[in-house]
Every structure is written in C-alpha cells, then in structure tokens.
C-alpha cells in the first residue's frame, strides 16, 4: 500500500516542484501586499474612488480564484495580452489577494486615532510625510498577523495553478500519479508538505504577534 522506496524516488522531483510553489507564493504575495496598499491609499487620498474601489474589491472577492486564473490565461490573449501560465497564475493570485489585503490595510488605517491626522495637519506636514512617518508606522504593525494569515492562505491556493498546467507541486504529483498509477504517495506527500508548512508558518505568525504586542501601548 505505502511504498517507502517509491517515496524516496519521487521526493527529489516533488522537492523541486515545491520550489516553484514557494516562488509563486512569494511573488504573488509581494504583488498582493503592494497592490492592496495602493488600493487602500487611493481610497484615502481620493475619496471619489472609494465606491469604485469597494465595488472592484467586492467583485474580486466574490468570484472564484480558479475562474480568475482561467480569465487571465484564456481571455486575455483575445485582448492581445498573452501571458505564460506561471505569469498568469501568479498575477491572478496577486490580484485576488490584493483585494483581501486592501481591506486589511483599510482596517489598519481606520484604527489610527483621528487626533494623529489632526496633529499632522497642525504641524503642517505634507500628506506624503504624514503617511510615511506617522500613519504607516502605526498602522502596519497591528495588521501584520492578518497579512500573515493571507500569506498562508495564498500559499494554500497555489495548487490551483495546476489547472493551467504550471509545474508546481500538485501538477507534478498528478503527473507522477498518471505515469505510475500510484496516487497514494505523491498526493499524500503534497498534503503532508502543506500541513507542515502551514503549521510552521502559524507558529511564526504567533511569534511575530507576540513580538509586536510587546511594543509600548499606543
């Protein structure tokens, strides 16, 4: 039933594929964190964009990521934008999670005391300085755990890229399965890998949370 020598045989192949999964996670999350911040800042800087942005966020959050991946991969070529599978997948991951992250940033900004904004105005700080030196340093630390949770969530969505044949962990496991007719070991190993990674990152997030909570109370 469970063949350890087969496990040893496929382990290097899966390990190589895991690197692709991790790459997709990191690039996707950098995209999500940056784009999310841009969306959240745009809402504050230009109040007239608040409604279109919240409709956009709602649209992205309420349609499946799989369909968005298909949309980028299959529909964009008809607009003349052809993306390779990895780029389309990572872009979809990034945009999808940017919608979630922008809400997290917004909650961070909403939690800044009004007096902080007023003090900045009183001190005649430019809006750039206000954001860079006063608002962001106070707004970001409390939301790091929430962002961390989305990093883990994004990591767990990377198997979706297998649907457009990106050679990440899941796709590699499926290929091994269809070549050898042994699905037990590859798919179980993928599951164990994800479980291990999520448990490790959950511990890391808790550690970061504790570290941030030690900062002096505002």
């Amino acid at each position: 039933m469970w063949d350890w020598s087969f496990v040893l045989e496929i382990l290097p192949v899966l390990a190589h594929a895991a690197i692709i999964s991790i790459e997709a996670t990191l690039i996707g999350f950098v995209l999500a964190a940056t784009l999310g911040l841009v969306l959240a800042l745009a809402r504050i800087a230009f109040p007239s964009t608040a409604l279109p942005i919240s409709v956009l966020v709602e649209l992205i959050r309420s349609t499946p990521l799989l369909i968005q991946i298909f949309f980028l991969y299959f529909v964009f070529p008809s607009f003349g934008v052809t993306l390779d599978a990895f780029t389309a997948g990572v872009l979809a991951l990034g945009i999808h999670y940017a919608a979630y992250c922008s809400e997290v940033y917004r909650s961070g900004f909403d939690n800044i005391h009004r007096g902080q904004w007023e003090a900045c105005t009183a001190l005649n700080l430019s809006s750039w300085t206000t954001f860079r030196d006063i608002i962001i340093p106070q707004a970001i630390p409390p939301i790091v755990p929430a962002l961390g949770n989305y990093l883990v969530a994004l990591f767990k969505e990377t198997p979706l890229l297998s649907a457009i044949a990106v050679l990440e962990l899941m796709q590699t496991a499926k290929i091994i399965g269809s070549e050898t007719f042994r699905y037990t070991e590859p798919i179980t190993l993928v599951g164990v890998f994800f479980l291990a990674m999520s448990l490790v990152s959950a511990t890391l997030i808790r550690a970061v949370e504790r570290l941030l909570n030690r900062r002096p109370a505002r």
Partner: peptide, 14 residues
C-alpha cells in the same frame, strides 16, 4: 492546514 484541492484529490484518487 492543507489545501482544499489537495483534500479533494486525496479523497478522489487516494
């Protein structure tokens, strides 16, 4: 801790 897709495949193939 594991992806929904991995769980689906596990129940379906394994």
């Amino acid at each position: 801790g594991t992806s929904a897709l991995v769980q689906l495949f596990w129940l379906f193939f394994v």
